[in-house]
Every structure is written in C-alpha cells, then in structure tokens.
Design a binder for these strands. Sequence first.
DNA 1: TAGATTATTTCTACAATGGAATTTATAAGA
DNA 2: TCTTATAAATTCCATTGTAGAAATAATCTA
Lengths: 391, 391
Amino acid sequence: MDEEIDAMPLKRSTWTEDAGASRAVALEVLRNGPLSRSEVARRLALSPGSLTRLSTPLIRAGLLREVGETSGGRVGRPSQLIDVVPNAQAFAGLKLRDDRVMGVITDLRAQVHKSAERPLTSQEPEAVADSIRDLVDELGAEWKHPTAIGIGLGGRLAAHRMVRSAAFLGWDDVPLAELVEQRTGLPTILENDVVAFTEYEHWFGAGRGLSRFAVVTLGAGIGYGLVANDAVVADEDHGIGLVGHWPLDPFGPVCSEGHRGCAKSILTEGAIVTALSGALGRPVTYEEAMDLGEAGEPAARRVLDDAGEGLGRLLAAIANLTMPECIVLGGEGVRLASVAREAVERGIAKDRDPRTRKLDLVIRSGSDTEWCRGAAVLAIQSFVLGARMAA
Amino acid sequence: MDEEIDAMPLKRSTWTEDAGASRAVALEVLRNGPLSRSEVARRLALSPGSLTRLSTPLIRAGLLREVGETSGGRVGRPSQLIDVVPNAQAFAGLKLRDDRVMGVITDLRAQVHKSAERPLTSQEPEAVADSIRDLVDELGAEWKHPTAIGIGLGGRLAAHRMVRSAAFLGWDDVPLAELVEQRTGLPTILENDVVAFTEYEHWFGAGRGLSRFAVVTLGAGIGYGLVANDAVVADEDHGIGLVGHWPLDPFGPVCSEGHRGCAKSILTEGAIVTALSGALGRPVTYEEAMDLGEAGEPAARRVLDDAGEGLGRLLAAIANLTMPECIVLGGEGVRLASVAREAVERGIAKDRDPRTRKLDLVIRSGSDTEWCRGAAVLAIQSFVLGARMAA
DNA sequence: TAGATTATTTCTACAATGGAATTTATAAGA
DNA sequence: TCTTATAAATTCCATTGTAGAAATAATCTA
C-alpha cells in the first residue's frame, strides 16, 4: 500500500457543481459558441424564465459571460450573447509516439496556445511518465498551468487509465494515468488517439452539431473513428487494426500479413514510399512522393492515384455502412487525399449507389498538433462532464 | 381540399398521457419484461418512493399489473414483479410485396396472434389501400381490432407517411399512410422493411438491451440495418441498395449493373438459383438448392460455400466498421447462413483481425411473419411514444 | 412618436423528486 | 418457534426545479 514515489496530491475540480440543467446550459454554450439565452432555451426545451435562473449563477461564477449582442436586422429587442470564458482553464493534450511525446496546451474550447515536444530517451513506463511530466511543466509555464491532462496513443486502453497493449512501445498493462498523476498531481485521462481525434471533431470540429460522421486518419497506419446518434462508437476492439487490412484491390501488393491489396499495403506512408521508390529506382520520402505527384511525374501519379482510388473505396464502404453526414480525413499522411482528390472521388463513385447523397469530405492539415488537440478534448470532457467519464 | 372518399374519423389514442418519468417507467417495463419496482428504480435512477408514486397510477389505469413475485433465494422481502398488460391493445403489422400484402396482428410486445395475406389484383395505390383495409379488417375480426397499423416495404419513405419511391410497385410519391387512414380510421405508419425488422430486434428481439448491433437480411435483395448508441441509424438513403453491390469476390459473376462479384451477384436467391441451375443443367428452386447443399451435393456445396464465404466477408466488413455486439440474420433466404455456416465463419475470419472479439451471430427463421412483426413494432412505437414518431 | 416585435427578468403556483422513517415480507440462525 | 438481518415497498414531507404569466427592456417600422 505504501507508495515508493512521493505522489503529489491529486487536484480534482469540476466545472459546474450541479450536474443537471445548469451543466446542460454550460455545455450547450461551450460546444455551440456564443448563444443568446433564448436560443439556448429553445435548444434545451426550457422556458425563458428558467434560462435566466440558470444562466445568472453561471455568469456570477465566472464560467459564462455576456459577449455583446446579435447584430440586429430583426425587429424586437436584440439578444445578448453569452459565451464561456475559454481562458479560465487550461488543458494539456499529449500524443505519445515511439520516439517522442508531443503536447499542446489549450483553452476550454481546445484552441491551441502553445505546443512543444520531448524526445523519449527510454520506453520504460517510468521514464516516459517523467518525460510527460517535464513536457506538461514546460507547457504550463509557457501559458497557464493545466487543470487536467489528456493523453492519446495508438493502442488499446482500459477505463481511460491503463494501457492494455501498445505495440509501438512494447507495453502491456501499464498504469500510465496513475504514473502521470503521481508526478503531476493532475487528473489524467488516456484514450486511443483516433478516438480522441474523433472527439475533437465531435465537440469542436467538423462534426459539431452532426449526429453521425466518420473519421479516417492516414499515416503509418490507417485509423478509423465513428460517431452515431451523437456519441462516439467505440469498444475494446478499438486500437486493433479494424480497417488496416481492409481489402481494396485484388491485384494490389501483399502486406506483411499476407493480404493482397489491403489498405495497409496501399494507403500507408510506408506503402506509398515503397511503391514509388521501387518504381523510380531510388529512395523517396513521403513528402517527396506527394510533391512529385502534384507536379505530374507519371510514376508518382500512378502510385498516388491507385492509393487515392483505394481510399475512395474505403470511404465508400464506410459511407454505405454507417451513413455519415460527413467524413473527416486527418493524420500525417492526409496530403494523399488532396493530391489524389479526383482518384478518391472516382473510388467513391465505384462502390456507391449514384442515387445516394454526395459524400461530404473534410480534409484536415495533418499536423501533429491535431492529435494533441484531440487528447486535450478528452481532458476538457473529463473536466466539464465530471465523473461521467470515470467509466 | 374536399375529400372524394368518405374518410373515417381518425382514432388516435396514447398510452400514457404523461410524457415524462411515468412513460419512462412504462417503456422500461414494456421492453424489459416483468421487473420489480426496485429494479426499475435502479435502471432509471429514481428513488424507491418515486417508483411507487409512478407505478400506482399506471396500474390503476390498467396499463401495468402485478404478476407475482420473484422466486426468493435471497433474504429480505421478495419483490413484486410488475408487467405490462400485453393484450390490452392490438397492432397490425403488414409487409407489402409486389404481388401480395401479408399481415399479422400482435399484442403490445409484438407477439403474433394471427397472420393472413391477400393477393394484390392491382398495383394502383387505391387498390392496394383497399386490399390493406380488407386484410386489417380480417385480422382484427380474428383476434382484436388494432390500435394502429404499421406497414413495411422495400423502398424509400418520407416522414413515415409517404412512399417516395418503391420500384417493385412502380410507385413514386404515393401518400399511402393517408390512403390507409382514410379507409380504416387508424393511425398508420410506414417504414422501410429492413428498418422495421431492425426495430423489432431492437425492442423485443436479439438487440434488446444492446447499444449496438446490425441486421442483415437475405432474399431477393440484401438488406442492412444498424443500431448504434441505442438508436436505429437511418437516413433518407435507406432503401437504396447500400450493401447490395458490396464487392465480395473479384473473380465472381457480373451483376445486372456491371459489378463483378458484388453481394447481389452472389448472395441473393436469384444469384444462387442461377448459379446452381447453370451448374446442374436444370432449373432448381432456392429451397432445392439448400436441400442439395445440406445433402452434400458437390455443385450445390460449392455454390453455397462461395456464397457463404461472401456473406462472411460482408459480415466482417460490417463488424469492422460498426463494432456491433451482435449481428442478426433474417430474410427469406437466410437458410444460406445455416447451411453454409462454416463457410460464413471462414469468410469472417478472412477479413477480421484475429484479436477481435468473436462475432455473435443470431439466425432468424426467415419466415414472412418476421417482416410483418417488424412493421407491427412501428405501430407499437408510434402508440407508446406518442408524437415522438411524427418526425 | 406610437405600435409591433422580440428578449429578458421577475414572481408565483405547481409538480416532481429525493430522503428519511415506516411497514411489510421473507431467509437465516439461535 | 422466535429473533434478527435483509430487502422491498409505502408514506410523508421538505426541497427544488419548472412553467407560465406579467412586467420590463430594447430595438425596428410605419
């Protein structure tokens, strides 16, 4: 029972003490930007009187504030917009890789204020937790000390606290959240990196206000996330390659596990680099492959168009089975989707009934901070929703 | 504005007049069988006192009743089980085909009490509505007159009232619900047949209590339904062949729309009959094909195993993208899944990561009344949920 | 400037809830 | 058989959250 490490006392705070209508008002304003009281009342099916009663204490507590009024145009008294005070709290969002940990510090709306990273000198859990503490300290000193920490990583997790398995670190059953909490004294939430990215899009990104959308990330592997009926769909299988070996091209190359033309053998950075390096007879980087493709170099064009079409077929499959209102594309390798946009559309058309609604694609920048921002959203959610995350 | 037909006055009644906690209690008991008051209190997070307050009027109104007590074994006062009075109301569920309309009359739990069918002498909307009225009258006379009518059909619908398009009847924009309401005086709900089947499984079948599951139906076409986060996922694209042309076998036969080895060209009754008739040099029926396969006839075995493997790959795709806790297989052609069960499992294994949870399959009988029961659930839902269906 | 329109606040009556105390019905053990 | 422990269900009351009406505020329009 006695701790080896001098664990810092864990600081837990909650946003609203009330978990009922008061929190619902605060959440609605947090997620849907500045809103008038009457608009919030409409959305939550509350009376105008109730809205005054609920919003006043939130404003007095410094959680919300009035930020001006609607630019008229309509008859009647203009409405006062209320909004959260985003800088009241800071959150740390980290992404763990095999060789480094990257992090950002954000406000309550997951806007990034600073970012930084540290190399990992060792993959030992304790050493990694030390690096995380140092990174969080650095980020906190640069802007504001965070209220909570979210950590995203590619792997399977248990109860937001335990790394069940993470092949890229060689980890099994590592209590990472606890290690970090001991060192920082801050509540820490773990989540699969793709799920975290999906939560960002859900709360503050392209999926805001949508009841259904999907996320696909490109990079070293293929990631997949789903929101349906206004909540993320995830189970313990998340973090296993659910779509990594998706069959796309019966005549494609063979992947490491013997699948011919699976997503991994066509869409990943490694697959594209390998294919183009082989074709050109010299090693090329991923960025170089993209540049060549954009410039119209024939071999690159062919490799990227094949990949793009494969991506399109994967997107069509997702659209057919989950009926999303939108698909968000992200990840370090997402440039493929822009460079081979036409091939992507061609691939979608191949497997999708022409009578269906056109598929709405949103392409993100692919920067590393997007992963971190996703992790920060987890921290934000654990703070504003209180114990509901505990499961 | 004046009606040609002497429309019967529409009888609308609701289950509980209260839409709040009182209805939640009634719904919980309806969907989850006999429950003790304390169990309901736990599930709905209500105090025991509230449960007494809420259940007493429901019992006095004849909606619920006490049905005995739990067989002890535990210390303490035994709990009184309360249950709905299922025979208090009857519902008609119909399935519309190109040549006939089939129907059942059920109780509040979608238990079938009688079934019947009528041939369609004409596909004119008015004539079809007449046949529906006659069938509902017949069913009502045989057991109890229904409170509401649910109609399932393969097509795209609008607002549960209008057939937007149904190719098998050559219909576009037919106000079928209105036509039936004019003739019967009963509230009428339309729904896509696969969605209706999915709702049955969701409320009273294998999906009861699950937050995620999928449904696949086999027959003249391939149907697909999805429940995620405890609600059916459906949009206006439902009723279009979302999975009908799913690519399964790059070396398979070509379907009517030029796809090689798509689901339609491999899994449908027509595809199997065609493939086996060709192989044997004589016409065979679907049932005959199944019998031959079961008996081990080599050509039939091969055709069915190929189809079974294709089905397995489709199921793997669904499982990978929607992470269901269970997949329900139904439809007239569902016998394929039993006869070629091993091939199905083989197909699943091909496209699914071996580390994932084993996929739980539920195989339904494939009888016609299953479609009708699904439609009845729509009627039940519209009754017990009140106006919430109106959307 | 008066009237229309919409937002917000104030005030009050009402309804729903939790919680504590009580009653009821069983099993387990003396 | 009697007592005790346990759990279900009921009763009752204090509290709270809510709607609803009326009042007030701030704009546009005629």
